[in-house]
Amino acid sequence: MSGEQNTPPGSTRRRAIEYFLGGGILATFASFLYPVLRYVVPPPVADLGVNEVVAGKVGDLKPNSGAIFRFGSSPGLLILTSDGTYQALSATCTHLGCTVQYRGDLRQVWCPCHNGIYGIDGRNISGPPPKPLTAYDVHLRGDEIVVTHKREA
């Protein structure tokens, strides 16, 4: 469009028109594109409201073993310790987000990606993990093992 002006150059009037046109195009496109770009980026995923999940049934797990269960949109790890108590942890390694597993031989939680080791309570013991795993509350309802977020103090 701007390529075919053939009015004598240097006139302030022409400048003004160019400013208006250029500014207008930039401003309108910015004001149209900004909402679209914000729209295209998905909003942060809400925690889907999951606060409680049935991780399994009593008797599914042998003592000194663990199993992965689904807690909302992320995996959780349910452990039955050798002394018969249940423990539930987030199964997402705090290092690079691999899914951890319970190692009966070590009696510890182990991340296979970079050999990270956590205690049964989720404490990061050795290897790269920078933070402990989040621990969840476990209680029994009938023969169902119910896992909930720890109550905020």
Binding site: I17, G22, T28
Partner: peptide, 20 residues
């Protein structure tokens, strides 16, 4: 803000039409 931008654009277009 959007309407101001549109107003500038309209003014620019109108001036441009007048010029050509």
């Amino acid at each position: 803000i959007c309407l101001i931008a549109i107003a500038i654009m309209l003014a620019g277009l109108w001036l441009f039409i007048r010029k050509i």
